[in-house]
C-alpha cells in the first residue's frame, strides 16, 4: 500500500486502509508499521458509558468544540455485533449529523466483531492509523458499556466515563470496573432531575477509590473531575475540552504518566500475543478437533483438563 495519498489527506485512501486494517490484511499492517513513527501526535480520547447515557451526542459536541479551536477530529464509533448472525447495525452517525460536510472531521463506525470489552480487536490499530494520518484528536467511542467493558482505557490516553442521572445508586458506582478507568467523569443530561445526587454519589465513590488505592494508576496531581454537561445543547462542553487538555499535559509531563503509557502498551502486547498464539494453535488443529473433544468431554470419556493437554501436546510437536 502507498502511504502518499493517505498522508496528503486523500479520504478515500484512508477509508480503504481502515477497511484493510479491520480485515487484518498484512499489507495494511505493514503500512501501519511504516508510519508508526509518525503516530503519537494525536490525543487519543476514549468515551465510554452505559447505553443511552449520551456517548455519541457528547462526542459530536466535543468534535464541534475542537473544530471551533481549529483542530481536526477523527471518531471511531464501536457498536456491538450480533452474536447470532455476526451482523451489526452501526447507528452512531445518527447523533453526529451536525458534523457532516466538515472536511476536518472523519467518522468511522466499527462493529465489535465478537470481541468483548467494548471495542473491536482492531480498534487500537485503526486509532493509530488515524493518528498517523494527522488528526489532532482521535476519539474512540465504545459500545454501550456496563461494568467490565474497560478495553478503552488500554487504547486511549485519556478516558471519559459518562453517566446520566437515575442510572443506579452509589453501590453501582463503587463496583469494580468502569469507575476505575475514568480520568474524567461526565454526568450528562444535567438538565434532568437527580443530577446533584448522581454527582454526589460519584464524588464519594471517587473518594473511596483514592482512599483504597494501593498501587494506583492515577498520575499524581490529577484528581478525577466530575463535570456536568447537557450535550444536546452544548452546555459544559468547553470545560470537558479543557479538562482533556489538562489531563494530557499531566500525563506527558509526569514520569508516572509515561509509566502508565508503557504499562498500557505492555497489556496490548500481551493481548496481541495471546491472540497470535491461539491463532497458531488453531491453524494446526484439524477443523473438527475441538468438536470431537467437546463430545468426548460431554460423554465423560475424558475430562476438560486432559482435553486441553492433548490439544497442546498434539500442536506442540509441530512447533518450531
Amino acid at each position: 500500500m502507498n502511504p502518499e495519498p493517505i498522508l496528503s489527506g486523500d479520504r478515500r485512501a484512508l477509508a480503504r486502509w481502515l477497511t484493510a486494517l479491520e480485515a487484518e490484511q498484512p499489507e495494511a499492517q505493514d503500512l501501519l508499521a511504516t508510519l508508526y513513527a509518525r503516530a503519537g501526535r494525536a490525543h487519543r480520547v476514549g468515551v465510554t458509558g452505559a447505553p443511552g447515557s449520551g456517548k455519541s451526542t457528547l462526542v459530536a459536541a466535543l468534535a464541534k468544540a475542537w473544530r471551533a479551536r481549529g483542530q481536526t477530529v477523527a471518531v471511531l464509533a464501536v457498536d456491538p455485533s450480533s452474536p447470532f448472525s455476526g451482523g451489526a447495525i452501526l447507528g452512531d452517525r445518527v447523533r453526529m449529523q451536525a458534523l457532516a460536510g466538515d472536511p476536518g472531521v472523519f467518522i468511522r463506525s466499527m462493529a465489535s466483531r465478537g470481541t468483548l470489552g467494548g471495542l473491536a480487536a482492531t480498534t487500537a490499530d485503526l486509532a493509530r492509523a488515524l493518528d498517523a494520518a494527522g488528526f489532532d484528536q482521535v476519539v474512540i467511542e465504545t459500545v454501550g458499556a456496563g461494568q467490565s467493558e474497560i478495553d478503552v482505557a488500554r487504547t486511549a490516553q485519556t478516558t471519559i466515563v459518562i453517566e446520566a442521572p437515575g442510572l443506579g445508586d452509589d453501590v453501582q458506582a463503587i463496583k469494580a470496573g468502569i469507575l476505575e478507568i475514568a480520568d474524567i467523569l461526565v454526568v450528562n443530561k444535567a438538565d434532568q432531575p437527580g443530577v446533584e445526587a448522581t454527582v454526589r454519589a460519584l464524588k464519594s465513590a471517587l473518594e473511596l477509590e483514592s482512599a483504597a488505592r494501593v498501587s494506583g494508576e492515577a498520575a499524581p496531581g490529577w484528581s478525577v473531575p466530575v463535570l456536568t454537561t447537557v450535550a444536546t445543547a452544548g452546555d459544559g462542553i468547553e470545560i470537558v475540552i479543557d479538562a482533556l487538555a489538562a489531563h494530557r499535559i499531566q500525563m506527558q509531563s509526569s514520569p508516572i504518566g509515561q509509566q502508565r503509557e508503557i504499562q498500557r502498551l505492555r497489556r496490548e502486547l500481551e493481548a496481541r500475543l495471546r491472540q497470535r498464539v491461539w491463532q497458531r494453535v488453531e491453524a494446526r488443529l484439524a477443523p473438527d478437533t475441538l468438536d470431537l473433544l467437546a463430545a468426548q468431554v460431554h460423554q465423560r470419556v475424558i475430562d476438560l483438563e486432559s482435553a486441553v493437554k492433548s490439544v497442546l501436546a498434539s500442536t506442540h510437536t509441530h512447533t518450531e
Partner: peptide, 23 residues
C-alpha cells in the same frame, strides 16, 4: 452484514460522505 444507519433527512452530500468514510 454490517449496516451503517445514518438516520433521517440526509442530503445527497451527507450520504456520499458517509459512504466514503465508511468505505
Amino acid at each position: 452484514m454490517e449496516v451503517i444507519y445514518t438516520g433521517l433527512r440526509q442530503t445527497p452530500e451527507m450520504v456520499a460522505e458517509a459512504a466514503l468514510q465508511e468505505d
